[in-house]
Computed example of a mutant assay.
Amino acid sequence: MSSATVTSSEPGVLASAQYGKDLVRVLRVVRDGKFHHVVEYNVCVLLEGDIASSYTQADNSVVVATDSMKNITYYLAKVSPHILHPEHFALHLGTHIVSKYAHIHRAFVDVEQLRWSRIPIASDTVEGQTAPHPHAFWRDGGEKRIVKVEVDASAGKDKLVGRVSAGLVDLLVLKSTGSAFTGFVRDEYTTLTEVDDRIFSTSVDLSYTFAPISLAAPADDKNLAFDVPKELAEGDKGGVWDADKVSERARTATLDIFAKDESASVQATLYKMGQRVIAENAGVQSVSYKLPNKHYVPVDMRYLGVDNLTLAQAEVFVPLTAPSGLIAATIARK
């Protein structure tokens, strides 16, 4: 390939650049005797650094091949003691990359975790009771846990900063009552009728952002060391090092508020969800939700002389996929 050079006649300048490997699919089995753990991840790794010449001068000497990023991801999946914890694994992966390559200053690692749950099986000793199978799993719906990590070495390889957000997507929920929508603006464009009771359904997209953390540079020759505190300090509770519990609490809060709230609107319910996540997790700085309406419209059966439209009689509905409302907000810690 002939080399390209920057000349004064070029009308543009390279303002930013990053590249990497997307959709690296990983299934990891961790064996603890007869009791096995599994995680399945979709991983994306993007890098920033002194790579401009690869764009402007066709200089591949600064390119860490995206295939190498894939191989690093698989290797870390094999050797990292943090593989079962997606936030910590992503921090480990990003820290290794920025520490290994002198010219790479930022690594962005996104992890999407698919939901595998243990199959409950009948107890051999107690009738009517079940227990989780030690090594058999089922795909527990389409919900996914998501993690987005940036490891920033721009201030120096000994001054690493980790920025982490996490959450979940595609958590589909529905309740058949306990939701109203009244008192909204009415003008010449309004055709929507007010309702005191309706089906409320949405696909939850939740993300929360932790306070930035300082990361220790690896002390070993291969830049593979990465330590997570074994005991949480008081200030770490609800933060990055407590990420699994934060994930559990955020999911529980979302489902609990959704189910129990006598919803005046999606907006009002969303706000209560975010407030609870903030209140229960000291290390979370902000919470964002996107809640698309999943509309269910009662079928008009008046042509048959059947009432399926009044609130007390509406029992058969047709799902509508589009268009749909989309309610979004971010709640930040004071």
Results as ranks from 00 to 15, higher is better:
Val204Gln: 05
Tyr271Ile: 10
Ile146Trp: 00
Gly178Leu: 08
Leu14Ser: 09
Tyr271Gln: 15
Asp307Phe: 12
Gly162Asp: 05
Glu188Ala: 09
Lys272Asn: 13
Leu14Pro: 12
Asn281Phe: 07
Ser247Asp: 02
Asn281His: 12
Ala243Leu: 02
Val64Gly: 15
Ser80Arg: 02
Leu27Asp: 09
Thr5Leu: 10
Glu87Ile: 01
Ala153Met: 03
Lys157Asp: 07
His85Glu: 02
His36Asp: 10
Gln275Cys: 15
Asp187Cys: 09
Gln313Met: 11
Ala136Lys: 10
Ala219Gln: 09
Glu280Tyr: 08
Gly274Trp: 14
Leu206Ala: 13
Ser61Met: 03
Thr269His: 10
Val306Ile: 14
Lys260Glu: 13
Gly235His: 14
Ala155Thr: 11
Met273Leu: 14
Ala282Asn: 10
Val45Lys: 00
Gly162Trp: 04
Arg118Leu: 06
Ile278Trp: 06
Asp110Ser: 02
Gly183Leu: 11
Lys334Met: 08
Ser54Arg: 04
Val109Cys: 00
Glu234Met: 03
Ile72Tyr: 10
Asn60Val: 07
Asp300Arg: 03
Ile51Asn: 15
Leu114Thr: 01
Leu174Cys: 03
Lys237Arg: 12
Asp158Gln: 02
Phe35Gln: 06
Thr66Lys: 06
Ser117Ile: 03
Ala166His: 00
Gln129Arg: 13
Phe35Ser: 04
Tyr101Ser: 11
Arg31Asp: 12
Pro134Gly: 05
Thr7Pro: 04
Leu93Phe: 01
Asp187Arg: 10
Phe258Val: 10
Asn223Gln: 15
Glu150Thr: 14
Ser117Gly: 05
Val266Tyr: 03
Leu326Ile: 14
Tyr289Asp: 11
Gly156Arg: 07
Ser123Gln: 11
Arg145Ser: 14
Ser286Leu: 06
Arg145Pro: 01
Lys272Trp: 06
Arg31Cys: 08
His37Ser: 12
Ser324Trp: 05
Leu311Ala: 14
Ser16Val: 07
Gln18Leu: 05
Arg276Glu: 14
Ala250Ile: 03
Asp236Cys: 02
Val318Arg: 13
Ser263Met: 09
Tyr19Leu: 01
His105Arg: 11
Pro319Met: 09
Thr330Tyr: 08
Gly94Leu: 02
Glu231Arg: 04
Thr330Ala: 10
Leu304Val: 10
